[in-house]
Design a protein around this nucleic acid. Structure first.
Lengths: 209, 209
DNA sequence: TAGATTGTTAATCGATTAACAATC
DNA sequence: TAGATTGTTAATCGATTAACAATC
């Protein structure tokens, strides 16, 4: 298979397929179809077939897709058939919750390094790891060859931290701070801001009384 | 202004514009342009002008947009020129972090009710509120006329909770559980799953050594 | 005025869908 | 076999962009 340019919007759907397939597998199903998958996800079956066909032929006419095979293929395609080390910067309430979250492992990620610049937090143990001084962040990340970071600092520190992360060789940043980061070309950034989602939804609601 | 059908993808960008405008205002700027806004957000200036033009004429040739005026307009358009009460269901680590998060107020939302079904948590105080028994959730939400909920329960309870929320009159759900919810037409659901974002990004990364 | 920027149009670009031959 | 479902094509649909007259 020659990896030609795949639209990013397709890449964005693959993790959803993967999540739904894992769920089907938990339900002890062995095969599924683009139709079933589409119904679960609110996506048309044609779109699912087309998306998958960009990467190969994974299904069988009449039968559909073998779930565990397709899971393995999607993991390989997404590069989550291994475990990425993740650095977490900012150990406030949210950072702590992320550090304790059990849902990263088995989906390709493990938080292995925690950083903060608050002397009161440095040295604390959270889960199985110790909070490290943000002053050693660049060196530590570079030496551990970590490529993925999650950012849960206050908004006014996020850009400075991001600059250091880029210097340290980080290539993908999941940013929980409510600001748009400026990063060089080639660095991936994704954003999580619950308020953005809430605002988007209440547009469709009648004003409260 | 007649509200004709606005594409949802446009609605999804308005909160980003709002967030960037608030930031510009914090920098003590009074006016901005589609060009500046676009550079900050990684969006073309033409798109910003076109999006805004769907709702009215907010700018001036040669001058651009008056920031505080545009903020007020966007808040009005999005229905965030008031404070929505939000119910939070599931008071684990993540729920606790959300309950403490200061970023909801001033952007149109306030968590006012916490629910859990764990007897050890019911009755606890978190911030200024007491954790209520999930058994009284439907009644409480209906009587308080709450329309917006955030769901941070474990995945295998999320669908059951969502069903109750819909019964209770909730119209918008922000779901942190890593499953797709099935809800009736007209109920808005948005999803936050950090792993989905991480998986999407590492597709673009070389495999780790 | 001269420079800057809007709102809007038309063209381009890209994504989704319907349909169906192939085939398990 | 008959029924089901894939992979793929062509058509449709929708979103983005380039360009510019209008005008502050």
């Amino acid at each position: 298979m020659v990896r030609t340019d795949i639209p990013d919007i397709v890449i964005g759907r693959l993790p959803l397929y993967l999540r739904a397939l894992n769920r089907l597998q938990q339900e002890n199903l062995a095969f599924t179809s683009s139709h079933v998958l589409g119904q679960r996800l609110g996506i048309s079956s044609a779109q699912i077939r087309k998306d998958l066909s960009l990467f190969g032929e994974f299904g069988k006419q009449g039968t559909g897709y073998h779930i565990s095979t397709l899971i393995a293929e999607l993991q390989r395609i997404l590069h989550t058939d291994c475990e990425w080390q993740v650095a977490l910067i900012g150990v406030g309430d949210l950072g702590r919750a992320l550090a304790h979250y059990k849902g990263f492992v088995n989906r390709g990620f493990r938080i292995t390094h925690l950083f903060d610049n608050d002397p009161a937090k440095i040295g604390q143990r959270i889960g199985e790891f110790e909070v490290l001084d943000a002053a050693v962040m660049e060196k530590t990340i570079r030496e551990a060859c970590i490529k993925v970071a999650m950012l849960s600092t206050p908004g006014d520190e996020a850009q400075d931290v991001a600059d250091i992360l880029v210097q340290a060789g980080i290539q993908a940043i999941l940013n929980y701070a409510p600001i748009t980061l400026l990063v060089p070309d080639g660095i991936c950034v994704q954003y999580i801001d619950p308020v953005i989602h809430l605002q988007r939804m209440v547009y469709y609601l009648d004003l409260p009384v």
